[in-house]
Design a protein around this nucleic acid. Sequence first.
DNA 1: GTAGCGTCCGTTTTT
DNA 2: CGGACGCTAC
Length: 721
Amino acid sequence: MDVSELLDGLNDKQRDAVAAPLQNMLVLAGAGSGKTRVLVHRIAWLMQVEQASAYSIFAVTFTNKAAKEMRTRVEEALKAPVGGMWIGTFHGLSHRILRAHHREANLPEAFQILDSDDQLRMIKRLLKAMNIDDKKWPAKQFGWYISAKKDEGLRPKDIQAYDINEQMMLKVYTAYQEACDRAGLVDFAEILLRSFEVLKNNPTLLRHYQQRFAHMLVDEFQDTNTIQYAWLKLLAGDTNSIMIVGDDDQSIYGWRGAKIENIKRFLTDFEAETIRLEQNYRSTATILKASNALIQNNSDRMGKSLWTDGNDGEPISVYAAFNELDEARFVSSKLRSWLNAGNALQDAAILYRSNAQSRVLEEAMLQEGLKYRIYGGMRFFERQEIKDALAYLRLVGNRQDDAAFERVINTPARGIGDKTLSHIRDCARSESLPLWYAAKAIVEQQHLSGRAASVVTKFVELVEHIEDKIGDLTLEEQAKYAIQTSGLMAMYQAEKGEKGRARVENLEELISACGQYELPEDEEFSSPLQGFLAYTSLESGDGQAEEHEDAVQMMTLHSAKGLEFPLVFMVGVEEGMFPSQQSNEESGRLEEERRLCYVGMTRAMEKLYISHAESRRLYGQEKYHSPSRFLREMPEDCIEEIRIKTQVSRPPAAGRFSSSVSHAAFEESGFNLGQHVLHAKFGMGTVINYEGSGAQSRVQVNFDDSGSKWLVTVYARLQAI
DNA sequence: GTAGCGTCCGTTTTT
DNA sequence: CGGACGCTAC
């Protein structure tokens, strides 16, 4: 193939990265600078120019979506499917190593993955058994502690507990790990840590992988945590070349262990060269100028400034809303015009700092008759009914799986109550047996009443029966059989209401998902079922079924990373909301908030609206937030303030008048904003209550005849704040 | 088991 | 304010 084809259409910097010699490299890739393109072309370059075999390529991402996109695009570039190449997520690839070497990892062949929900249940169970008051010691905190320690690569033996609090954490960590090991279960952090340890403790294995993966590539490197860094370093050894792509300005996951300093550490540890991708192909010059100015307020940056050879575009519009309802209405009315102008709703996104903010916006969309799609929330494979069904299948494959056992022992209800269950748990603990075997033992030893013994026996027989029957069935038939025979289907069919109907539908969808599942060819699974179970845990599935309806995209700023939209609204850009209250209190968190703002702004291609509300109902209380400091950090000439001119007139008899009023309109009404005006008559039966003066004026309008309270905001110039 | 009530708490999320 | 969770009374 002609090499030029790989470099055509790339800018100089992109070419430098794609055609770089075999050495360690950092590609500092700004938002919208074509980093995926570079990664994909680099892989093609390695194969076609450096004659690298597909087997020698190892590419890691954080999300399944990114991994999938990379694979498809590599195949497009090479015009052939690529077998043998390892492209996947940190967890996916680590899991693959664990599967291949489960013996060395001290795991049963059919070991299963605990998601965070399973993990929490497991901890709760342990707390009960250990007589720890979960009021005083919330299970969540243990979960957080355990994951954080594992992310740091720390086992209980590596930790010194100096205070009572940490001693308790450590005690539960130890017990939790023992329980997981006994049951053949690994949580997400364990997948990474265990895979790291397997490689580290088996030099032969390590050498094998090091020799194989001569070319390593890592995406979104700024999000790597300690264990991921160590894992990469171990695999890279002294000889392999590794190209990392990342953007320190887009590091927004520090709170869950990501170490932004890993980028700088990489430069020294790996003696790497740096290439900067600063040309942006996404946003207007105005948006970039404002984003650059904002992010310059952070310290310790690697340094990078985005530019475009495109147009300035429109200024960023800043809307000071009266309250959160007004803000939502503003957004919905702008979206209505956008739609009426012949645009697609799906090209627009509303970004907010926290999920709770979506509700008001949702209501406004509903009112305006605009379709919307909210990202986040419960994923398909995380749903209760799905997890119930999967638990049966897990237990069939691995009787040690205590988490699965606990989940289905009395689901559907079969009369196995707390008492029987605690007998089983006691026996399991004293004999160090998995719950399944404890249950069997307890029946044999006749420690149970006749009725309890018979229901437990029934359960044991049920699981064994399912195992007997499904051996020769297809995956789809296996799932169907387990869901039917277990009584889950009947149980959810009996559940009344919309909820029950949805659950039945989901179970049916699970069966059909089993039918559609294709066992990956080049990955070794002991059975299709095991492949499917891993798939459900590692790829929890989309929130909803892919809606092809034209709808506005609503999501948190975090979930917007990596996406782009012609039209973007950033709402709630207020002190206390964004930056969030706690980021202001905890040291070092402010810069991450600023990066989050930077991420949000750089999602916008053509037009960006930023709004903040002067008053907002929060936790049942009215809060008055000032505009976010981030707004002040954007250059004035990039910003246009919007005020909607509204004649102040007598409002309808009921409801809330929450429109805004311009200085002009207010002055026309005979009021001078330069002075305090208290309790003045305004229109028919209106009382004005004017608080404050100058920059942050607030005006309340009370209608004494209806008794309802009206608020009118008087806007001050933003620069004055 | 579960409806109903009271209490508590309140970023961000992927795997 | 409202959702999640746990406890109590059937």
